[in-house]
Design a protein around this nucleic acid. Sequence first.
DNA 1: TAAGATAAGAGGGACAT
DNA 2: ATGTCAGTCTTATCTTA
Length: 305
Amino acid sequence: MLASKLVCKTCSQASDVVTDAESGEIICTNCGMVNSNDKAFQVSTAEWRAFDHNQMMDRSRVGMPMTLTRHDKGLSTVIGIPNKDASGKELDDSMRSMMQRLRTWDHRIQVSSPTDRNLARAFQRLEMLRGKLGLPDNVIEKAAYVYRKAQRLGMVKGRTIAATLSASIYVASREAGVPRTLAEIASLSNISHKELSRVYRLIVLNLDLKVPMIDPVKCIAKIANKMEVSEKTKRHAISYMHNVVATGIAAGKDPMGIAGAVLYLSCIQNDEHRTQIDFAAASGVTEVTLRNRCKELHTKLPQLN
DNA sequence: TAAGATAAGAGGGACAT
DNA sequence: ATGTCAGTCTTATCTTA
């Protein structure tokens, strides 16, 4: 357990907040509020205030910020390589060999349990995928959190780390409202779409998550950026999409398919000629699906076409 | 060459057994 | 737990303009 001073948003007290070292859950010691993310708390700013350089140096808290994306949450210390003592003098032979033994154990203790080894490997992979997928830090942290929980529930057993991790990333990006499709994540992490979606459903089920619907308006923005359509068309498409969502046509359909169709029709209306093939590729659906969505929009919302 | 149509097949959710 | 069914999406192929 790690303790720090935070302001709980539930009881508004600057109380001691305890972080569960296992799950990363945050507990307010004043009102007992348990939260799975730190949005319910804000860092108490009072003790950070500094009015001159000396105070600032005095009050700065050194060290890396805590992160869930390392198996030890980035809190461990490591015995360094140079064989020198604190004053910079070379160590004698017996001390030198002792430090070597300590280094060995230092390393063994840090990544010792099977759980830690698993997490270490998973987060190594997470770091690799972060760049490929272009995901912001909050999504990565969230993914690490979801993975820890899944791991604790024994869900990685019998499955690959890669699949569970990728599913965690998908969950995290959905929750953060960053549109990434299952297919995108699957192909970048070299897992089959099928396996990924299976693990994803399992995680949602076992962790009892309520993953929000992907915002179709965000999908519009994503496709529009890829296709480099004009600002005017984009705005047209977004207002169009609001109408579509209001009628409930979008329910049960792939939001990327809908977004692609809406954007395609908006382009036609604004005399921007693009092919269905291009839109299908940018949306990650087939032309047929795109056409079907277009047809539905034509029949169900004729006043907007 | 782009768009439209059709058919077969896969995978998953809802529901009953 | 297992099977069935309706609905969705994909792939492949052919036709139309």
